[in-house]
Amino acid sequence: MKISSSISLKPFNTFGIDARAERFAVLRSEEDLRAILRANIAPLHLLGGGSNVLLTKDLPGLVLRNELKGIELESETGTDVLISAGAGEVWHDLVMWAIDINFGGIENLSLIPGTVGAAPIQNIGAYGAELKDVFEKLEAYHLETGERMVFKSEDCRFGYRNSIFKNELKGRCLITRVWLRLTKTPRPNLSYRILADSLRNKGITQPGIRELSETVM
Score class of each variant (00 low, 15 high):
60 P>R: 01
97 W>Y: 11
101 I>T: 11
55 L>A: 01
85 A>E: 10
130 E>R: 05
80 D>K: 03
70 G>D: 11
130 E>S: 02
128 G>C: 07
114 G>M: 11
54 L>N: 03
63 V>N: 08
105 G>N: 10
110 S>M: 04
60 P>V: 06
131 L>E: 10
70 G>H: 05
121 I>M: 12
55 L>M: 03
119 A>R: 11
110 S>Y: 11
150 V>L: 14
99 I>E: 08
57 K>H: 15
130 E>I: 03
127 Y>S: 03
110 S>G: 11
80 D>T: 12
59 L>Y: 11
72 E>V: 07
100 D>F: 04
105 G>M: 09
67 E>C: 00
147 E>P: 02
131 L>R: 06
64 L>C: 00
110 S>V: 05
54 L>Q: 01
143 L>Q: 04
77 T>M: 05
75 S>N: 14
84 S>R: 03
77 T>A: 03
62 L>G: 04
95 V>E: 13
57 K>I: 06
51 S>A: 09
78 G>M: 00
116 V>T: 15
70 G>N: 07
118 A>F: 11
145 T>I: 06
71 I>L: 07
86 G>C: 02
91 W>G: 02
82 L>R: 02
93 D>R: 11
78 G>S: 06
86 G>H: 08
66 N>T: 14
83 I>M: 01
102 N>P: 08
110 S>K: 09
145 T>D: 12
121 I>F: 07
102 N>A: 14
148 R>Y: 15
79 T>S: 15
99 I>H: 05
83 I>P: 01
131 L>Q: 07
94 L>Q: 10
114 G>R: 12
106 I>H: 10
91 W>P: 06
113 P>Y: 15
89 E>P: 05
124 I>D: 10
88 G>K: 04
142 H>L: 06
136 E>Q: 06
123 N>R: 01
91 W>T: 07
53 V>N: 01
92 H>W: 09
62 L>K: 00
58 D>N: 12
51 S>R: 03
89 E>L: 09
109 L>E: 12
150 V>C: 09
106 I>A: 06
84 S>G: 09
78 G>P: 02
60 P>A: 02
54 L>M: 10
76 E>G: 07
68 L>F: 05
66 N>K: 01
86 G>W: 13
53 V>P: 01
140 A>T: 04
82 L>Q: 02
53 V>F: 08
61 G>D: 05
88 G>V: 09
67 E>R: 03
94 L>D: 12
118 A>T: 13
69 K>G: 08
108 N>C: 08
72 E>P: 00
65 R>S: 04
123 N>P: 07
54 L>F: 13
83 I>G: 00
59 L>I: 06
74 E>S: 00
84 S>P: 12
54 L>K: 02
80 D>S: 14
129 A>V: 15
151 F>N: 01
55 L>D: 04
68 L>Y: 05
101 I>V: 14
97 W>Q: 00
65 R>W: 09
87 A>F: 09
110 S>R: 08
115 T>N: 08
102 N>Q: 14
96 M>W: 15
119 A>E: 11
146 G>F: 15
88 G>L: 04
136 E>T: 05
117 G>I: 13
106 I>G: 08
106 I>W: 10
104 G>M: 10
127 Y>H: 15
63 V>F: 09
119 A>Y: 14
66 N>E: 05
91 W>H: 09
151 F>L: 02
127 Y>T: 03
97 W>I: 00
81 V>N: 01
123 N>A: 02
118 A>Q: 10
148 R>C: 12
95 V>H: 04
64 L>R: 00
140 A>F: 04
81 V>W: 01
